[in-house]
Protein backbone atom coordinates (compact mmCIF):
# COMPACT_ATOMS: atom_id res chain seq x y z
CA UNK A 1 0.00 0.00 0.00
CA UNK A 2 2.84 2.39 0.87
CA UNK A 3 4.35 1.96 -2.59
CA UNK A 4 1.09 3.04 -4.23
CA UNK A 5 0.86 6.09 -1.96
CA UNK A 6 4.44 6.99 -2.90
CA UNK A 7 3.50 6.50 -6.57
CA UNK A 8 0.51 8.83 -6.16
CA UNK A 9 2.58 11.46 -4.32
CA UNK A 10 5.34 11.37 -6.95
CA UNK A 11 2.66 11.68 -9.63
CA UNK A 12 1.17 14.77 -7.95
CA UNK A 13 4.59 16.44 -7.93
CA UNK A 14 5.19 15.36 -11.56
CA UNK A 15 1.85 16.79 -12.75
CA UNK A 16 2.36 19.97 -10.73
CA UNK A 17 5.80 20.58 -12.30
CA UNK A 18 4.48 19.95 -15.83
CA UNK A 19 1.57 22.37 -15.36
CA UNK A 20 3.82 25.05 -13.80
CA UNK A 21 6.00 24.90 -16.92
CA UNK A 22 2.97 25.36 -19.18
CA UNK A 23 3.15 21.86 -20.63
CA UNK A 24 -0.59 21.24 -20.24
CA UNK A 25 -1.12 23.37 -23.36
CA UNK A 26 -0.88 21.72 -26.78
CA UNK A 27 -0.29 25.12 -28.39
CA UNK A 28 2.71 25.75 -26.18
CA UNK A 29 4.07 22.21 -26.73
CA UNK A 30 3.75 22.35 -30.53
CA UNK A 31 5.60 25.66 -30.47
CA UNK A 32 8.68 23.46 -30.02
CA UNK A 33 8.12 21.85 -33.43
CA UNK A 34 7.35 25.14 -35.20
CA UNK A 35 10.44 26.79 -33.62
CA UNK A 36 8.29 29.34 -31.78
CA UNK A 37 8.58 28.26 -28.16
CA UNK A 38 11.35 26.12 -26.70
CA UNK A 39 9.79 25.31 -23.35
CA UNK A 40 9.76 21.54 -24.07
CA UNK A 41 13.50 21.43 -24.76
CA UNK A 42 14.38 23.65 -21.79
CA UNK A 43 12.20 21.73 -19.31
CA UNK A 44 13.19 18.26 -20.57
CA UNK A 45 16.91 18.85 -20.62
CA UNK A 46 16.94 20.75 -17.32
CA UNK A 47 15.13 17.76 -15.80
CA UNK A 48 17.49 15.21 -17.40
CA UNK A 49 20.58 17.16 -16.24
CA UNK A 50 19.20 17.48 -12.70
CA UNK A 51 18.35 13.78 -12.36
CA UNK A 52 21.56 12.65 -14.11
CA UNK A 53 23.85 14.82 -11.95
CA UNK A 54 21.76 13.94 -8.88
CA UNK A 55 22.10 10.18 -9.33
CA UNK A 56 25.81 10.50 -10.16
CA UNK A 57 26.63 12.49 -7.04
CA UNK A 58 24.28 10.65 -4.65
CA UNK A 59 25.97 7.46 -5.83
CA UNK A 60 29.45 8.92 -5.55
CA UNK A 61 28.77 10.09 -1.99
CA UNK A 62 27.49 6.63 -1.08
CA UNK A 63 23.91 7.78 -0.38
CA UNK A 64 22.39 5.51 -3.04
CA UNK A 65 23.64 2.43 -4.87
CA UNK A 66 23.43 3.15 -8.59
CA UNK A 67 23.52 -0.60 -9.31
CA UNK A 68 19.97 -0.82 -7.90
CA UNK A 69 18.54 1.75 -10.34
CA UNK A 70 16.45 0.09 -13.02
CA UNK A 71 17.84 1.02 -16.45
CA UNK A 72 15.28 0.31 -19.20
CA UNK A 73 16.39 -2.54 -21.49
CA UNK A 74 17.53 -1.45 -24.94
CA UNK A 75 15.92 -3.07 -28.01
CA UNK A 76 17.42 -0.60 -30.45
CA UNK A 77 15.49 -1.21 -33.67
CA UNK A 78 11.96 -1.37 -32.21
CA UNK A 79 12.78 1.65 -30.06
CA UNK A 80 13.98 3.70 -33.03
CA UNK A 81 10.91 2.70 -35.07
CA UNK A 82 8.60 3.21 -32.09
CA UNK A 83 10.18 6.62 -31.53
CA UNK A 84 9.51 7.70 -35.13
CA UNK A 85 5.86 6.58 -34.92
CA UNK A 86 5.54 8.19 -31.49
CA UNK A 87 6.97 11.48 -32.78
CA UNK A 88 4.45 11.61 -35.62
CA UNK A 89 1.59 11.06 -33.16
CA UNK A 90 3.13 13.61 -30.77
CA UNK A 91 3.17 16.29 -33.48
CA UNK A 92 -0.47 15.55 -34.43
CA UNK A 93 -1.75 15.36 -30.86
CA UNK A 94 0.35 18.27 -29.60
CA UNK A 95 0.70 16.42 -26.29
CA UNK A 96 2.55 13.35 -25.07
CA UNK A 97 1.08 10.69 -22.72
CA UNK A 98 2.07 12.43 -19.47
CA UNK A 99 1.14 15.95 -20.57
CA UNK A 100 -2.20 14.75 -22.02
CA UNK A 101 -3.32 14.01 -18.45
CA UNK A 102 -2.25 17.49 -17.32
CA UNK A 103 -4.06 19.04 -20.29
CA UNK A 104 -7.25 17.09 -19.49
CA UNK A 105 -6.95 17.97 -15.79
CA UNK A 106 -6.84 21.69 -16.59
CA UNK A 107 -10.12 21.53 -18.51
CA UNK A 108 -8.89 21.06 -22.09
CA UNK A 109 -11.06 18.89 -24.31
CA UNK A 110 -8.21 18.16 -26.73
CA UNK A 111 -6.20 16.76 -23.81
CA UNK A 112 -9.05 14.38 -22.94
CA UNK A 113 -9.24 13.32 -26.62
CA UNK A 114 -5.49 12.49 -26.59
CA UNK A 115 -5.99 10.42 -23.42
CA UNK A 116 -8.81 8.49 -25.13
CA UNK A 117 -6.75 8.07 -28.31
CA UNK A 118 -3.79 6.70 -26.36
CA UNK A 119 -6.02 4.19 -24.62
CA UNK A 120 -7.48 3.09 -27.98
CA UNK A 121 -4.05 2.89 -29.62
CA UNK A 122 -2.45 0.85 -26.84
CA UNK A 123 -5.48 -1.47 -26.68
CA UNK A 124 -5.49 -2.02 -30.46
CA UNK A 125 -1.73 -2.64 -30.49
CA UNK A 126 -2.16 -5.17 -27.69
CA UNK A 127 -4.88 -7.01 -29.65
CA UNK A 128 -2.53 -7.41 -32.64
CA UNK A 129 0.58 -7.93 -30.51
CA UNK A 130 1.33 -11.49 -31.65
CA UNK A 131 2.19 -10.13 -35.13
CA UNK A 132 4.45 -7.41 -33.72
CA UNK A 133 6.12 -9.56 -31.09
CA UNK A 134 9.10 -10.86 -33.13
CA UNK A 135 10.04 -7.26 -34.04
CA UNK A 136 9.26 -6.05 -30.49
CA UNK A 137 11.67 -8.59 -28.98
CA UNK A 138 14.44 -8.02 -31.57
CA UNK A 139 17.67 -6.12 -31.09
CA UNK A 140 19.48 -6.79 -27.86
CA UNK A 141 17.28 -6.73 -24.81
CA UNK A 142 19.66 -5.68 -22.10
CA UNK A 143 20.57 -2.54 -20.22
CA UNK A 144 22.98 -0.73 -22.53
CA UNK A 145 24.33 2.71 -21.64
CA UNK A 146 26.06 5.53 -23.49
CA UNK A 147 29.29 5.05 -21.45
CA UNK A 148 29.38 1.44 -22.70
CA UNK A 149 28.57 2.48 -26.28
CA UNK A 150 31.22 5.22 -26.36
CA UNK A 151 33.79 3.37 -24.20
CA UNK A 152 34.09 6.42 -21.98
CA UNK A 153 33.94 6.74 -18.19
CA UNK A 154 30.42 7.45 -16.85
CA UNK A 155 31.46 10.85 -15.50
CA UNK A 156 32.87 11.95 -18.86
CA UNK A 157 29.57 11.13 -20.59
CA UNK A 158 27.77 13.11 -17.86
CA UNK A 159 29.93 16.14 -18.71
CA UNK A 160 29.30 15.65 -22.45
CA UNK A 161 25.52 15.58 -21.90
CA UNK A 162 25.73 18.75 -19.76
CA UNK A 163 27.80 20.51 -22.45
CA UNK A 164 25.41 19.39 -25.21
CA UNK A 165 22.33 20.57 -23.28
CA UNK A 166 23.87 23.96 -22.45
CA UNK A 167 24.88 24.41 -26.12
CA UNK A 168 21.28 23.59 -27.13
CA UNK A 169 19.90 26.15 -24.62
CA UNK A 170 22.27 28.80 -25.99
CA UNK A 171 21.34 27.94 -29.59
CA UNK A 172 17.56 28.16 -29.07
CA UNK A 173 17.94 31.43 -27.17
CA UNK A 174 19.68 32.86 -30.25
CA UNK A 175 16.92 31.50 -32.54
CA UNK A 176 14.21 32.74 -30.16
CA UNK A 177 15.38 36.37 -30.52
CA UNK A 178 13.74 36.75 -33.91
CA UNK A 179 10.94 34.19 -33.94
CA UNK A 180 7.47 35.13 -35.07
CA UNK A 181 5.31 35.70 -32.03
CA UNK A 182 2.32 33.40 -31.89
CA UNK A 183 -0.56 35.80 -31.19
CA UNK A 184 -2.83 32.98 -30.05
CA UNK A 185 -0.17 31.73 -27.67
CA UNK A 186 0.11 35.20 -26.18
CA UNK A 187 -3.65 35.43 -25.70
CA UNK A 188 -4.29 31.88 -24.48
CA UNK A 189 -1.11 31.07 -22.66
CA UNK A 190 0.52 33.47 -20.22
CA UNK A 191 4.23 34.09 -20.84
CA UNK A 192 6.90 32.76 -18.53
CA UNK A 193 8.16 34.62 -15.55
CA UNK A 194 11.71 35.80 -16.15
CA UNK A 195 13.81 34.98 -13.15
CA UNK A 196 17.20 34.95 -14.86
CA UNK A 197 18.07 31.83 -12.92
CA UNK A 198 19.33 30.18 -16.09
CA UNK A 199 22.89 31.53 -15.88
CA UNK A 200 23.52 30.37 -12.34
CA UNK A 201 21.95 26.97 -13.03
CA UNK A 202 24.18 26.57 -16.09
CA UNK A 203 27.31 27.36 -14.07
CA UNK A 204 26.25 24.87 -11.37
CA UNK A 205 25.52 22.16 -13.96
CA UNK A 206 28.86 22.72 -15.69
CA UNK A 207 30.78 22.62 -12.37
CA UNK A 208 29.03 19.40 -11.25
CA UNK A 209 29.54 17.89 -14.70
CA UNK A 210 33.26 18.75 -14.78
CA UNK A 211 33.69 17.31 -11.28
CA UNK A 212 31.84 14.16 -12.45
CA UNK A 213 34.26 13.80 -15.38
CA UNK A 214 37.16 14.05 -12.92
CA UNK A 215 35.54 11.52 -10.56
CA UNK A 216 34.80 9.19 -13.53
CA UNK A 217 32.48 6.71 -11.76
CA UNK A 218 29.27 7.19 -9.73
CA UNK A 219 30.36 4.53 -7.25
CA UNK A 220 31.82 5.57 -3.91
CA UNK A 221 35.43 4.39 -3.58
CA UNK A 222 35.49 2.16 -0.51
CA UNK A 223 38.23 0.52 1.52
CA UNK A 224 36.55 -2.83 0.89
CA UNK A 225 36.88 -2.34 -2.87
CA UNK A 226 40.61 -1.60 -2.52
CA UNK A 227 40.97 -4.64 -0.27
CA UNK A 228 39.35 -6.83 -2.92
CA UNK A 229 41.67 -5.42 -5.57
CA UNK A 230 44.70 -5.92 -3.34
CA UNK A 231 43.75 -9.49 -2.46
CA UNK A 232 46.08 -12.03 -4.10
CA UNK A 233 44.57 -13.93 -7.00
CA UNK A 234 44.10 -17.64 -6.50
CA UNK A 235 46.73 -19.62 -8.41
CA UNK A 236 44.15 -21.71 -10.24
CA UNK A 237 41.39 -19.79 -12.01
CA UNK A 238 37.86 -20.94 -11.36
Amino acid sequence: MTDLLIAFAIGVAFGFALERAGLGSARKLTGQFFLRDFTVLKVMFSAILTAMLGTFWLGRLGLIDVAFLYIPDTHLLPQLAGGAIFGLGFALAGLCPGTSWVSAATGRGDGAAVVAGLFAGVTATGLFFSRLQPFYESGGGRAWTLPQLLHLPYGVVVLLVVAMALAAFAAVNVIAKDIEVDVHLRRLVPPERRRRAGGWLAIAALALGAAAAAARTPVKPTKAAHAVKAAPRPASGC
Binding site: P78, I85, F86, A116, G117, G121
Partner: peptide, 24 residues
Protein backbone atom coordinates in the same frame (compact mmCIF):
# COMPACT_ATOMS: atom_id res chain seq x y z
CA UNK B 1 -6.00 14.76 -31.07
CA UNK B 2 -7.61 11.32 -30.76
CA UNK B 3 -5.81 10.04 -33.88
CA UNK B 4 -2.46 11.46 -32.70
CA UNK B 5 -2.98 9.78 -29.35
CA UNK B 6 -3.69 6.43 -31.01
CA UNK B 7 -0.55 6.68 -33.18
CA UNK B 8 1.49 7.55 -30.07
CA UNK B 9 -0.02 4.48 -28.38
CA UNK B 10 1.40 2.19 -31.07
CA UNK B 11 4.78 3.95 -30.93
CA UNK B 12 4.95 3.78 -27.13
CA UNK B 13 4.24 0.03 -27.12
CA UNK B 14 7.02 -0.62 -29.65
CA UNK B 15 9.47 1.70 -27.88
CA UNK B 16 8.61 0.32 -24.42
CA UNK B 17 7.75 3.76 -23.10
CA UNK B 18 7.24 7.40 -23.94
CA UNK B 19 8.63 10.85 -23.21
CA UNK B 20 8.43 10.06 -19.47
CA UNK B 21 9.64 6.47 -19.23
CA UNK B 22 12.18 6.60 -22.06
CA UNK B 23 13.22 10.21 -22.75
CA UNK B 24 13.28 11.55 -19.18
Amino acid sequence: AFGGGAVMGLGAVLARGCTSGQAL
